[in-house]
Simulated scan of single mutants.
Amino acid sequence: MIIAAFLMCIIASLDVALHLRHVLDIFVGLNNSNSKSVIAALNDTSSWINVMKMACYVAQTFVGDAILIHRCWIVHGRNGLVIILPILFWLGFTACGVMTLYIQATSDTMGALLKAKSIMPFITSMLVLTLAMNVLTTGLIVYSPWKIQKPWLNTRSTFTLRSPFSALLILSLESGLIYTVSMVILFAVYMVGNNAHYGVSNAIVQIIGITFNLMITSVGHGNHAEGGIAPPNSFMSPDTRNEDIKPPTLSTGWR
């Protein structure tokens, strides 16, 4: 986890630095002797700096999806069968990402290269595979605490957000949902041919790092008890938190 956190920080920082360098080169370093206009320079997606920015997106997604698969594997008790399909999606994304970088780096075409027929199938496949992987792994991660919590909920007359596993359920859902929604938006704007996909794809490089650290930060803030485990009465309603708690028995339905 520490290595992944450092990698994501380096990749996200490099992506920001590349964008800054690109903007400075075009709007500050561009002079009258340069034959390229500002628009042409921005659209030159085969330039080394644009190739590197695409590499940052592919690398950050590669690391983020790997961590998501690892979390799914841990949540399901290190059951390798659960993550076979996500791993296949992950490997397919990696292959499409490498082909995208190769075509972009070796192409002499300027302009809307990301919409060219030679590269569009790989980018589309890349987005579909990572989106499918995200939906699948997030669903599997959320299902695990829900499955554990369900017997406890069956003993309650009403649903409560203070059940022992509801906090984990909500945290798992919202941390994965941010990334998944971002991928849905990116896929939508790219398929309709809107130039907004440039901005969204750049934002996702940062969003992946945020969602990776969100669960760690949230759990760290909540683990205020000794040993990093929240006290049992922290899951109860305020008016019953200070009451005496009877030892759990089989008839109470507690797990």
Rank of each mutant, 00 (worst) to 15 (best):
M110V: 09
V181R: 07
L214V: 10
N202Y: 00
K117I: 03
N213A: 15
T124S: 15
W90F: 02
L24D: 09
F165R: 12
K53W: 00
V192A: 05
R78V: 02
S234L: 12
L81S: 07
A188H: 10
V219A: 14
W48Y: 04
V184K: 01
S182A: 14
N194G: 05
V16W: 00
Y179F: 15
M133R: 09
T106H: 14
S37I: 00
Y179P: 02
K147F: 10
S46P: 00
F122K: 11
V181L: 14
A12I: 03
G139W: 03
F159W: 15
N223M: 11
T94K: 08
C56I: 00
K115Q: 06
L85D: 03
H22I: 04
G253L: 03
P238W: 01
V135M: 11
T249L: 10
A5N: 08
D15G: 01
S166A: 10
R241N: 04
E174S: 13
M133D: 14
T94P: 09
L68Q: 03
S163A: 12
T180C: 10
T138H: 01
L214S: 14
M8W: 00
L136P: 03
S33D: 05
P232G: 04
Q104W: 08
Y143K: 05
S163Y: 06
S201K: 08
M110G: 04
N34V: 13
V205T: 15
V142N: 01
V181S: 10
F212H: 12
S107F: 03
T180E: 02
G220E: 07
A105C: 10
D239I: 03
A203P: 05
Y190P: 04
V181N: 04
N50C: 01
T180V: 05
L131I: 01
W48S: 03
S125W: 11
N213M: 15
T180W: 04
S172V: 06
I11G: 01
T61S: 02
V135P: 05
M215N: 13
L169H: 05
Q104M: 08
G199N: 12
S125E: 04
L88D: 11
